[in-house]
Simulated scan of single mutants.
Amino acid sequence: MHVPDEAPVLVRRDGRAAHLVLNRPRALNAINHAMVGLVDRALTEWEHDDTVETVVVSGAGERGLCAGGDIRAVHDDARDGDGTASTDFWRDEYHLNARIAHYPKPYVALMDGIVMGGGVGISAHGDIRIVTERSRVAMPETGIGFVPDVGGTHLLAQAPGELGTRLALTGEHIGAGDALLCGLADHYVPSDALPALLADLATLPARDAVARHARPAPEGVLAAQRPWTDACFAADSAEEIVARLLDHGDPAAKETAETLLGKSPTSVKVTLAAVRRARALGSLEDVLDQEYRVSCVALHNPDFVEGVRAQVIDKDRQPRWSPRTLAEVTDADVERHFAPLGERELGLGGRTS
Rank of each mutant, 00 (worst) to 15 (best):
C182R: 00
C182M: 01
L184M: 13
A185L: 09
H187A: 10
Y188M: 03
V189P: 11
V189N: 13
P190L: 05
S191P: 02
D192L: 03
A193I: 00
L194W: 03
P195T: 08
P195C: 11
P195H: 06
P195Y: 02
A196G: 05
A196E: 13
A199Y: 06
A199S: 15
D200Y: 03
D200I: 04
D208F: 04
A209S: 08
R212C: 05
A214C: 03
A214P: 07
R215H: 03
P216L: 00
P216C: 04
A217I: 02
E219V: 15
E219K: 08
G220C: 07
V221I: 08
A224C: 01
A224Q: 14
A224N: 07
Q225R: 14
Q225A: 13
R226I: 06
P227H: 11
P227L: 12
W228E: 04
W228C: 01
D230C: 13
A231I: 01
C232K: 08
A234N: 11
D236T: 13
D236N: 09
S237P: 09
S237G: 13
E239S: 14
V242C: 04
R244K: 15
R244G: 09
R244Y: 04
R244L: 13
L245W: 06
L246R: 15
D247G: 13
G249L: 10
E255F: 01
E258Y: 08
E258W: 11
T259F: 02
L260D: 03
G262I: 00
G262H: 01
S264E: 00
P265M: 12
T266Q: 10
S267P: 08
S267L: 08
V268Q: 04
V268G: 09
V268Y: 09
R276C: 09
R276F: 12
R279M: 07
A280S: 09
G282Q: 04
S283H: 06
S283A: 15
E285Q: 04
E285D: 11
E285K: 00
V287R: 02
V287G: 06
L288K: 13
Q290A: 10
Q290C: 05
E291H: 10
E291M: 10
Y292L: 05
V294H: 09
C296P: 02
C296G: 07
V297Y: 11
L299D: 05
H300A: 12
N301G: 03
P302N: 12
V305L: 03
G307H: 12
G307E: 12
V308D: 02
V308E: 00
R309M: 04
I313F: 01
D314R: 06
K315V: 13
K315G: 02
D316G: 08
R317L: 14
R317F: 15
Q318A: 14
P319Y: 09
R320Y: 04
W321A: 07
P323N: 10
